[in-house]
Design a protein around this nucleic acid. Sequence first.
DNA 1: TTCCAGGGGTAGA
DNA 2: TCTACCCATGGA
Length: 287
Amino acid sequence: MKLHLATPADFSFIECVNAHGWKSLLPFFWDADTCVLSRVEDFGADGVALMHVMMNDGMVLIETDAAVNESDLTCRVQRMLQLDVLVADFHRYCEKTARLEHIPTLKQGRLLRSPSLFEDVVKVIATTNTTWAQTKLMVSRIVFSFGLQLPSDPLRRSFPTPQRIADVSVDEFAEKARMGYRNSSVHRIASAIANGELDLESWIDEGISSADLCKRLLSLPGIGPYAASCLMIYMGRYDRVNVDSWARTLVGKEFGRKVTDKEVHQFFESHGEWKALVYHFYQWADP
DNA sequence: TTCCAGGGGTAGA
DNA sequence: TCTACCCATGGA
């Protein structure tokens, strides 16, 4: 089936997909030559389908290899591409701020995210204290071990639901996912969702303050300041910078010396509610 | 062997 | 609030 979605004038599909590394984590597959983003998606009662997302005549075109619920499909793609996230105010701020002028021109500001907050949480945990190569391996092991097979190509699988992970013991999960000390965090979160103790997805649309949202995210096992700030970016909250080793490197170059996390935060302090996006799309003098 | 990578959790000061 | 230490994993 085919479906078209209208996009805001300040939306760029390419910039959204390329904004960070998520396009390289299964079940996402990004074909840079054709500019088609695809992934296997578990539509529950509608089954497992292969989804292709691309631009067509200024609109987002979604193609699936099986009939699925149109409303469900639309919601998932809108979340993936942050079509519901407003960036106009951020672009206006960038227009009058040094080293940010390129952002509205390129229509940057949206970041590819997973169809569910659960998947984003698991993937962010998989980025902590490890290399990007290891992150990709951890995520691919989760997908291949616990995701559902695509009927037309059993080698491709969906990202598992919390229930699929909760259905196995933490030892079995650890043996297959090999996420090190992160195993128990992921399994605990999946189990809490599966048994009804935790309703992660409801956090997305709740109109709570950034401070309260941050507290909630920090209450999750395996989620610390860095991970919480990353997840807040995906939820349209940019007032906390996700200080990582790359941020310390870049700000350290600006200062010409090693910097503390506090100094990295201070470096972005003047950008107020846009701090995290500024870090993400900042034009560094010597990257 | 040792270090460390897109940190988190904890204890102690 | 800060520092120090340990935490699995796997590549360099």
